[in-house]
Design a binder for these strands. Structure first.
Length: 467
RNA sequence: GUGUCUAUAGUGUAGUGGUUAGCACGCGAGAUUGUGGAUCUCGCAGCACCGGUUCAAAUCCGGUUAGACACCCCA
């Protein structure tokens, strides 16, 4: 057989899958149109099966916000590109390499937000929030965009939750924010480690940078290639080089803390005192610097404490933040000290999953109070109403109208680990009753339809004692 | 943006030149049609895409795309 013929044959087979059996709707739809769509690079779906985690994360953040008086702010995904360029800083990777910038139809340079702090500051200024009682405490939850090379826990579109406190310079604010980050993971059940440092004010940092560069210049020949680059481009990054050969040089490098003026030093000391007082565990890391230009004084990052460090990216901080006392005025507002942090949701979810896996903790499951099984047309018609009535009285009922046999419905009830099944068949509809089946013991009880709600609630109440 | 590795049903995988591409989970149907958890039977669904080498490609080669890892950097 020639090549040509074989290829033709293949095509025919593909075009007409010779199945005689009726195809499902989905399969039938596929035969008509072969085109399937892939995700854009770095994009991902958060699927229904992930909901149990995500919901928890959101609720945890929401509760924290309520307890600590943060109000939700929702800012646009799209902003003037300059907003981010000015705040985050030209020369940072986030702006130079990772921002989605394009022209809209009017030729305006716009950007998909890579973070929210800049937008929050913009809103603070624009809406004259310094006239409100200070500080202004805001939180957010939403998608960010960074055009980065994807890796585990790193996407081009991802969720962040964040908290910002504007208009207060007191170190207690820094501590409060760190406490919040700590609480967030504590509530979720993920052990984390918080690394803190102070990178001072710009003048202090500048002096330190000079000293650092000077020191590194003298050791230039011992450095790796990356560090030689950093020496010119981004000297603070010299501090977190992981190359073996740079370690000795790093160890003797000057530390920023020694370049801080009295006031900055005091501020930092107070933050640490607060943290001690709060019993929030932290690690002092003199090499911690952050990638955005606007930070002043306190900076911190959150890392998961996992047994298998390699499972997550080697340096995958779950989140980070710090103080940015000068940003508001740089953005054209009345000088207002501020601080904030943000946490990556995808990273945090996967860190939590890994932690749960490692410790054999089961994920939370959606619990229903009962499963309603229906048999026959009349029963089915009655079933939806019954479910709705029970819903109104606060009972969560699971059901599946695609299943017709009682057997398959009980099977479903079983796999969902529902404590009770309600059976509504032809006979029950006529008698105005319903069968309540205890899924554990198999004991059944015929109950008047009007009393189902109360009987079921009473039966369910025995589970309350367990909690 | 640089380098390395990978790509088989929805998921996890077997299959290194000739197989009806195998298994498990999953999903669906059934085992005297109104009763679940066990078992069994049957069914559903896959070689990422494009091209090349070959009589013959899931398997070898090239490209594309995507993912993962290490950098860069960050959440």
């Amino acid at each position: 057989m020639s090549k040509q013929k074989i290829k033709e044959k293949k095509k025919i087979v593909k075009a007409k899958p010779g199945k005689e059996k009726p195809r499902t709707d989905a399969a039938a739809a596929n035969t008509g149109n072969k085109k399937t769509y892939a995700l854009l690079r770095g994009m991902h779906d958060v699927l229904p099966r992930e909901e149990k985690y995500w919901k928890n994360f959101y609720h945890t953040a929401e509760h924290l916000a309520e307890h600590f008086q943060f109000s939700r702010i929702e800012t646009p995904l799209l902003e003037e590109a300059n907003l981010f360029i000015r705040s985050i800083g030209k020369g940072t990777d986030v702006v130079d390499k990772e921002m989605y910038v394009f022209e809209d139809r009017d030729g305006n340079k716009v950007a998909l937000r890579p973070e929210v702090t800049a937008s929050a500051v913009r809103a603070y200024i624009m809406h004259g929030m310094w006239n409100m009682t200070q500080p202004v405490k805001m939180w957010y939850w939403g998608q960010m965009f960074r055009y980065d090379r994807p890796q585990a826990g790193r996407y081009r579109q991802f969720f962040q939750v964040g908290f910002e406190t504007l208009g207060d310079a007191d170190p207690v604010v820094d501590a409060e924010l760190i406490l919040l980050a700590h609480n967030f993971y504590k509530d979720l059940g993920l052990p984390v480690e918080i690394h803190v440092n102070s990178i001072g004010l710009p003048e202090e940092r500048q002096k330190y940078k000079t000293a650092l560069v000077e020191y590194y210049r003298s050791k230039r020949s011992y450095l790796c290639d990356d560090c030689k680059q950093r020496l010119n481009k981004n000297p603070l990054r010299l501090l977190d080089c992981k190359q073996e050969r740079c370690q000795p040089v790093k160890e003797d490098a000057p530390q920023i803390i020694d370049w801080l003026e009295e006031e900055s030093k005091n501020h930092f000391m107070k933050v640490l005192e607060y943290l001690d007082e709060l019993a929030v565990p932290y690690v002092l890391r003199s090499t911690l610097v952050r990638g955005l230009d606007y930070y002043t004084r306190t900076v911190f990052e959150v890392y998961p404490v996992v047994s298998d460090v390699n499972a997550l990216g080697a340096q995958s901080a779950l989140g980070g933040g710090g103080r940015y006392d000068l940003l508001v005025q740089e953005m054209g507002g009345r000088p207002s000290p501020a601080a904030g942090f943000s946490l990556g949701i995808e990273r945090s979810v996967s860190a939590l999953k890994q932690y749960m896996d490692a410790n054999q903790i089961k994920p939370p499951v959606q619990k229903f109070d009962a499963y309603l099984a229906q048999l026959g047309d009349q029963a089915r018609r009655r079933a939806l109403k019954a479910i709705n009535d029970l819903r109104n009285s606060g009972l969560k009922i699971d059901y599946n109208f695609s299943k017709n046999s009682l057997k398959s419905q009980l099977e479903a009830a079983n796999s969902l680990q529902v404590p009770y099944a309600l059976i509504l068949g032809q006979k029950e509809v006529q008698d105005g009753t319903v069968i309540i089946r205890d899924m554990e013991s198999g004991v059944q009880e015929i109950v008047d339809q009007k009393k189902v709600e109360n009987v079921l609630k009473k039966k369910l109440s025995r589970f309350d004692d367990d909690k």
